[in-house]
Computed example of a mutant assay.
Amino acid sequence: MGKLENRVAVITGGASGIGKGMAAAFVKEGAKVVIIDLNEEQGQKTIKELHEYQPESMFIQADLAEKQKLPGLIEQVIEHYGKLDILVNNAHATKIKPFEEITQEDLDLSFNTGFYPTFYLMQAALPHLKETQGKIINFASGAGINGDTNQASYAAAKEAIRAISRVAANEFGPFGINVNLISPIANSPGVQKWAQEQPEYYQSMLSKIPLRRLGELESDIGRVAVFLASEDADYITGQTIMVDGGATKLR
């Protein structure tokens, strides 16, 4: 029996990167995973890989920026599986720019793909998570915690996600629902692209990681997500877990 045997988990942005790493870790622990992603081609490819371990997993193609459709995504999961145990809000798009160059469009991109989907999916999932005493895992970032340069729109949305997660931990706790955050540094396709575009900044970031490496998508980030989604983390809520090789040490 895996740690997540027969549990139903939703992972946004699950077609690639950190989301895919978590999805792989979840199915290997017995979870039925629903990956929600904008990228149809990558989503279909990923779900085929997940079916090798858990044939009852499924892919839903959706644009999370379409706020009015978010509750329907949760209802689709409930109609198919009859329950929801785990909600992972991982998806987030952003643009890296100096503060003075950030536009309303840039802010909208970050909040519409990161903050608002996290908020509305938590809201829609709440009645169902009450029934299962489920888990919510949201995503923070060192960009917001440390105030990384050229990341204002991303940092703002990520810190807003941290804020509502702490509120939710207090409000949802009496129902037995745990709400935690992961703040990762991972070897994702996005980070690889960023390393090519800004090699000096990338090397500077890497040199500040005590373990001197990026986290692996499945074995590092995915395994921590499995822990937070399992009974092992039943007495942890409202916390930001830094899965970043020691780069940021919260006080």
Score class of each variant (00 low, 15 high):
I102L: 12
A163W: 09
I74R: 01
S230D: 01
G222C: 06
F59L: 02
E105Q: 15
P127D: 07
K130S: 02
T149H: 11
A23E: 07
E231M: 03
P210I: 07
L214K: 11
A229I: 01
Q68A: 14
M22H: 08
L126K: 15
N180I: 04
T248R: 09
V34D: 05
Y81A: 10
I137R: 03
S219N: 09
P71T: 10
P184G: 04
I177K: 00
E105N: 11
R223W: 06
T118N: 11
K32Q: 12
E131F: 07
G144L: 07
I209L: 03
A160W: 14
P55T: 06
N6K: 14
A93D: 13
D220K: 10
K208M: 14
N146I: 10
A160I: 14
I182F: 02
K48D: 15
A93I: 08
Q239I: 08
I74S: 00
D63R: 15
P98I: 05
F115H: 08
A124W: 00
I96A: 09
D85F: 02
M22D: 04
T94Y: 14
K130G: 02
E56L: 03
L121D: 00
A93K: 15
I78Q: 04
N89F: 02
R162T: 10
N180P: 04
G72Q: 10
E5L: 11
G147R: 11
G134S: 08
K135F: 04
E75M: 11
I177R: 00
N187P: 00
E200I: 10
G134W: 01
K3I: 10
I221L: 09
